[in-house]
Structure formats: C-alpha cells, structure tokens
Design a protein around this nucleic acid. Structure first.
Lengths: 116, 116
DNA sequence: GGTTGACCTGAAGCGCACTCCAGGTTGTTG
DNA sequence: CAACAACCTGGAGTGCGCTTCAGGTCAACC
C-alpha cells in the first residue's frame, strides 16, 4: 500500500483513472503492485500539482509521454513554462512575506494597536 | 468600479458578504463607494488568499479586527503562523524548480530521450 | 473455515471559492 | 426622454480536485 508517498489511496486511484499514472502492475488477484518507478513518478506528480499544474495539464503531459519521443519538444516546453510560473510564485510569496512583516510591525509583541 | 485591484466585481461582493470587507461606504443611490483604504485592504486579502489562507481564516481575522484591540495578540499569532506557511511554500517551490531542472536536463533542446 | 481487514469497481457526493443569473434600479449620454 | 451601461440583490450554478459510498472480492491469521 504505497500511499506513503504522501497522498491518499483514493487520490492514487483517481490519478490512475485520469491517466496520470499509467501501466500500474497488478497481481493476479487484481490488486495493484506499485513499482519503485511509480513511487518516484507520484512524487513528481505531487510536486507539479502542489505548484499549481492542473490535472488537465498533467494528463496532457502524460499522454505526450505515452506517444513517444517525437513529443519531447512539447513536453520540454510544458516544463519550461511551468518553471517560469513557479519562479513567479516564489517572487509573489516573497512579496507576501514582506507584506506580512510589515503588518506584523504594527503588532508589537504582547501590546496592541488598531490597524484592522 | 474598483476591480482594478485585480479581482472581479463578483469576488469583491462575495468578500463583502463573507465579512472580509466591512463597512463599505454607499452613495444614497445604494451604489458602493470603495475608499482608498478598501483598495489597500483588498490587496492584503489577495496576497493572503494567493498564499493559501482560506476565506474562513480571513473571516476570522476580520472578525477579530472588528472586535478591537484586545484581539491583537491572536491576530499577530495568525500572521506569524501564516508567515511560516509561506516560507514553507517558498522552500517547496525551490525544490520544485530543482526537480523541473533535473527533468529538463533529460530534454536536450530540440532533441529527445525517453523518460516519461 | 470463518471472520477481519485491505483491496477492488463505478458512480455519486462534497467543499471551496468563486461566478453567473434573473429581475430590478440608477445614472449618463446623445 | 430614450436607451444603454453600470450598478444592485438573493440565490442558484460551476469547476476542480478529490473523497465517500455501496456492494463486492481477496488474503491470511486463529
């Protein structure tokens, strides 16, 4: 039961249904047998999901992967444009930290001040 | 029409209904008259929302603000714990960049390679 | 061999954060 | 003053990403 890559069992099956997790091996019983590669791939999925790539986009990426090497350029393009997005998120969050710190400066430790 | 703080008019009204935006002035006609402070506050809201603070939490924060100075300690606490969260998001995204770069290293510019 | 727990499926449901709609009032422009 | 845009309200609807459910199969320990 390989959900110790940090997602629920339901999420795993959901990803599989959506095509983000292909060719999961099965025992003759029908039970899934996740491989080491599956674990690594789920980590990639998580990482991309957590940084805001949609299920839809991930599905597209996986479909491209399944179609073979001639789609490499498009996949590369997806990754680079997502990379740009993640960089923007970092900048955004650094600004957020600044703003939070600014607001915190109005709350001297256990004293107070009005500022909504 | 103050949605040039980057959110839709519906979102603005939604925030108002949810109590994130209090005491919005009205003309006698009933039309809203957003103040300069409202614009600033919406920027704060956006910043906190975009970094993952929920509507529910923001509502709580606003309620505290409306209750006066004796809630300052709790508000401060909310901000500091959100700050920690944002810092974690930055770290997470920096790791994501690494992972993306690693995957990109398998896609030499317009060539290709199998790696799913 | 029975019962307890982990797994299976397809389909329905949920929570969040908006977003849209219907039906109406206001304000402004030619 | 007509007509068109911009605003108002309450309530319903939407989309996404899971999550739960019902109804069953499998495994394995006592």
């Amino acid at each position: 039961m390989a959900e110790r890559c940090g997602v629920s069992i339901d999420t795993l099956r959901y990803y599989e249904r959506e095509g983000l997790l292909q060719n999961v091996a099965r025992a003759e019983s029908g039970h899934r047998r996740y491989s080491e590669d599956d674990v690594l791939w789920v980590e990639v999925l998580r990482c991309l999901r957590e940084t805001g790539m949609s299920i839809e986009q991930l599905r597209h990426y996986c479909q491209l992967g399944a179609q073979g090497n001639h789609t490499a350029a498009e996949r590369r393009e997806m990754l680079t444009s997502h990379r740009t997005l993640v960089e923007a998120q970092i900048v955004e969050r650094q600004l957020a930290l600044k703003l939070i710190d600014h607001k915190l400066s109005y709350y001297p430790n256990p004293q107070d001040q009005e500022n909504k």
